[in-house]
Nucleic acid binder design. Structure first.
Lengths: 260, 260
DNA sequence: CAACGGCTTTGAGCCAAATCAAGAAACGGG
DNA sequence: CCCGTTTCTTGATTTGGCTCAAAGCCGTTG
């Protein structure tokens, strides 16, 4: 549920990129299969683990993963089980939870499509740290531990790409959070406008205002008020989706101001 | 600035772990140098990139890094420069910033001891994406790009350990944020108490209440009020640092409730 | 034991922003 | 061009939690 907010902004500008080599490989498949492979690639790229992988990596990855359709309510693994691999959710929802001594369940998180779970168990002690169970009929990609680790050992560049993807994501994520936690709505809006404007002095909003509001972590009413306030201060000029920046310096000051 | 809040909780239980092998290696050094190596290990473990590395990895890592003492204000690199390596801050503070077309600087973030910067440039296109400049006399560890990548290629297990550390950190970080963003103080407090209690029904707070307040992302006044409110609901019983849990079910409900 | 300083608790007030409710504008299809 | 629907704006109200200020509660130390 919370992923939506942040992940949306982080991933909204991800591109589909298919190299010649990939196309050649794809030609071994029927059209239908090709579409499946591309779909899977797009899905995998949604995850920070794989966001930075090139086409070759993607192909190797898809060669080792197994599809699993699971019905709602089927226990995937239990806490303490030996971890045989990890999962990516392709569709549906999976809940990951622990059980209290009295048998009450405590949900750790709900995994949405594109999300991974049990991936830490692969790198750690090798035991699943919780229970997992789909809360809707779901399609999962399963990556067997040994095969996956062998692949990483064989193709060290792929591991390096994964490190790169993770650390870049971490950086973006952290700054996203910092904005949300330490800056008020005007500051966030100002930052957004400046970034979007670049060197220009007019911006065209690429999304609806209510969508923008949600991207900025607020609601449409508040966004509307904030836009009006900035207009009244002769800082910007709003007409529909077109915004003209009248006072970039003031805007920049605003964008850097922390609430305290 | 914001790191303090989250990082504190994430790292507060990191341990120092020295294997026999490490000690043997260490015996090649004078006592003074040994202390330096251990200090550096502790520093590096603070960073998610290296948090999961074993002693061997740490040794290799420290063999390839160079110490650099830099005075306040010295430009470390500029946007667009070819990235020759990345940095870890050992002491001091470094600001990373961009320049707007009009020459106004826009600070992206301030890096504190334990933090890395320019690490993404190593894995990406190879150009520094911003400017970096110490805002206080600082000690930095510099990891040359080529040497570092070669090391990762040679020792694929080390790369895998890094992936593990990063993804574990990401997981913790995300759930931390989720708590902070989507749960109110009572829910966060309830979650904290339950986790601390385990199977027991009394908890002994390991830190002062004001410290706890800051760990939960609030202030002592609010924590105090929240504790009283929960007491009045006969959910817990507070006396000094000892808290007895009267109604674990209610507490669990509270901990899982999202604000909406 | 009295004075001091560090925590903790209480109360009062304030503020940003969410929510609720209701118009106004824009849009799109027939 | 009109009418229904969505999107946007505006106002009123509510709220969680922070700040400020003052007082209570210790343990310490001279």
């Amino acid at each position: 549920m919370f992923c939506e907010v942040f992940y949306h902004r982080l991933y909204s500008n991800s591109r589909i990129f298919v190299s010649r080599k990939n196309i050649k490989w794809l030609s071994n498949f029927s059209l239908f299969d090709k579409i499946l492979v591309m779909e899977k690639t797009m899905l995998l790229r949604k995850n920070p683990l794989f966001s930075n992988l090139n086409d070759d990596d993607m192909i190797s990855l898809q060669e080792i993963c197994r599809d699993r359709d699971v019905p709602k309510g089927e226990l995937l693994f239990s806490e303490g089980d030996l971890a045989e691999g990890f999962f990516i959710v392709a569709s549906g929802r999976v809940k990951v939870y622990k059980l209290s001594p009295e048998g009450k369940e405590r949900i750790l998180h709900i995994v949405h499509p594109g999300g991974a779970f049990a991936e830490a168990a692969i790198f750690g002690d090798g035991l699943y740290p919780a229970y997992a169970e789909p809360i809707a009929a779901s399609r999962l990609l399963f990556f067997p531990k040994k095969t996956f680790l062998d692949l990483l050992h064989t193709r060290s560049q792929m591991a390096i790409n994964m490190i790169g993807g993770l650390s870049r994501f971490l950086r973006q994520f952290a700054s996203q959070i910092e904005e949300l936690t330490f800056k008020d709505v005007p500051a966030r809006l100002a930052g957004y406008l400046l970034e979007l404007a670049g060197d220009d002095d007019t911006v065209e909003l690429p999304v609806s205002k209510s969508q923008l509001a949600s991207n900025l972590g607020t609601v449409s009413e508040t966004l509307s008020r904030t836009l009006r306030k900035l207009s009244e201060e002769n800082c910007i000029e709003v007409s529909g989706k077109t915004i003209r920046i009248l006072d970039p310096d003031l805007l920049a000051d605003l964008a850097e101001s922390y609430k305290e």
